[in-house]
Amino acid sequence: MSTLHTVNKSPFEKTSLTTCLGHLSAGAAVLLLEDGVYAALTQTSVEGQVKGALDSVKVYALGPDLQARGLSEERVIPGISVVDYAGFVDLAAEHDKVQAWL
């Protein structure tokens, strides 16, 4: 069963990201969106956690939410793929289900 996990809360304010990363199974993917995209930045206090996850799962960040927040793609951790809304739809279709971490 492959699951797309979505995280839309800031990792500095909520534990959603940490809990999500602690509950991933093989074949899972994580999509960061809305305030969740802050977790995609380099040099933050959660960078190590996100890089650790990249060893075993794919991590994506939603481009329009990065742009809205003034975060350029150069600031995103290498290995995270930036996708647009169409890419979001593709990811949802490619996985068996979507689990949202609110």
């Binding site: 800031s10 500095f12 802050y38 329009p64 809205a68 927040r69 003034g70 975060l71 350029s72 809304y85």
Partner: peptide, 14 residues
């Protein structure tokens, strides 16, 4: 997270 309010280059068109 309030510091994020002031980042440069915000573009919400999309």
């Amino acid at each position: 997270d309030g510091v994020f309010q002031l980042t440069k280059g915000q573009d919400t068109a999309a």
